[in-house]
């Protein structure tokens, strides 16, 4: 009589002696449990939801309102004309430069990084590779360093009396130290190198996880059919990894458009604003140079938000295989 025992366990016994009553009782019980679980679920979710609303959504709404206001942050008034901050940013040469810089990082760095990540993942997914756990850890390790400290390390590496210059001068590749961070083109390259170093391993981990979800039998079948590893990669790995690729693309685009630490700590936007990013300029307009122009900064932040949303949307549409 397992059913009765179950009932007993739930502590409501005597009156449910006949089968019909037992059945009804069970239904009642089930409802209670569901309600109880539901309540427990809400109890767990509510604090987080309330926090997100207070800490994220409420500030977002406030920032949106602020983006239509101007003046000292102690006494802000509505902008006149209403869209003043939004039209203003397109006449702002530095902001336009910062958009250009950010997109340059995006266009050059993201593809290089993702291709490298997928190649590394492919290599490290080899079953016969020795010490692959060690290799994986090594490649992922840069992600464990803090953004500020790695930016400062790159800064000292590429400074005029830094390690890279010492190497190049001692190997007679350069006759005298080159000021990498003092020239617009080389400063941009250093930032891109730093970004690749920092984020490749991070994306590789996603690809590795994706690759491990692909059945090895598929590859064996391809081998039996005589497919070269190149064909295997393009016809099997890439299509099957598509969801992961889309995800890493969106994350990288999102991350690059919001790039801040590298610009601030490696070059401080210089030389001559040639490496400044959008987020860095937004920060400068709110705290950086004591200007405290919060209305304008919020408006620029919303433009970044729209850019991220649009690019992510395009990416999802392009990556969607369903017709």
């Amino acid at each position: 009589m397992p059913r009765i025992r179950l009932c007993l366990r739930w502590g409501e016994i005597e009156e449910f002696s006949n089968a019909k009553a037992l059945k009804g009782g069970n239904a009642l019980q089930k409802g209670n449990i569901e309600a109880k679980q539901g309540r427990a679920g809400w109890a767990f979710v509510t604090p987080a939801t309330v926090m997100i609303f207070i800490m994220s959504f409420y500030p977002m709404v406030e920032a949106f309102i602020t983006s239509f206001r101007t003046g000292s942050s102690a006494a802000m008034k509505w902008a006149n004309p209403f869209s003043f901050n939004y039209t203003r940013m397109f006449q702002d040469k530095v902001f336009v430069t910062s958009i250009g810089n950010t997109f340059l990082y995006l266009i050059i760095q993201v593809p290089i990084m993702l291709v490298l990540a997928i190649l590394l993942a492919q290599i490290l997914n080899n079953r016969h590779l020795m010490a692959k756990g060690w290799f994986r850890t090594m490649i992922f390790l840069p992600c464990a360093t803090s953004l500020v400290s790695y930016a400062l390390i790159f800064k000292s590496l590429f400074s005029t009396n830094g390690l890279i210059n010492s190497f190049l001068v001692n190997l007679h590749i350069l006759s005298e130290p080159y000021n990498f961070l003092g020239h617009p083109a080389s400063a941009k390259i250093v930032i891109i190198l730093a970004l690749i170093w920092r984020w490749t391993g991070y994306n590789m981990v996603f690809y590795l996880a994706g690759l491990q979800n692909i059945d090895y039998a598929v590859y064996e079948a391809a081998k039996i059919d005589g497919a070269s590893s190149w064909t295997t990669f393009w016809s099997i790995t890439v299509p099957l990894l598509r969801p992961t690729i889309v995800m890493t693309f969106i994350m990288s685009i999102n991350g690059t458009l919001q790039l801040f630490d590298e610009s601030v700590n490696l070059t401080n936007g210089g030389p001559a604003n040639s490496t400044i990013t959008m987020s860095h300029y937004i920060y400068n307009n709110s705290f950086g140079t004591g200007v405290a122009n919060f209305g304008y900064a919020s408006a620029m932040a919303f433009l970044v938000f729209i850019m991220v949303a649009v690019l992510a949307f395009i990416n999802i549409k392009v990556g969607d295989t369903r017709d």
Binding site: T70, G71, S72, R88, Q91, D92, N285, V291, N293, Y296
Partner: peptide
């Protein structure tokens, strides 16, 4: 600079 001064 003129541009920045017109911001507030």
């Amino acid at each position: 600079t003129v541009f920045e001064m017109g911001g507030n």
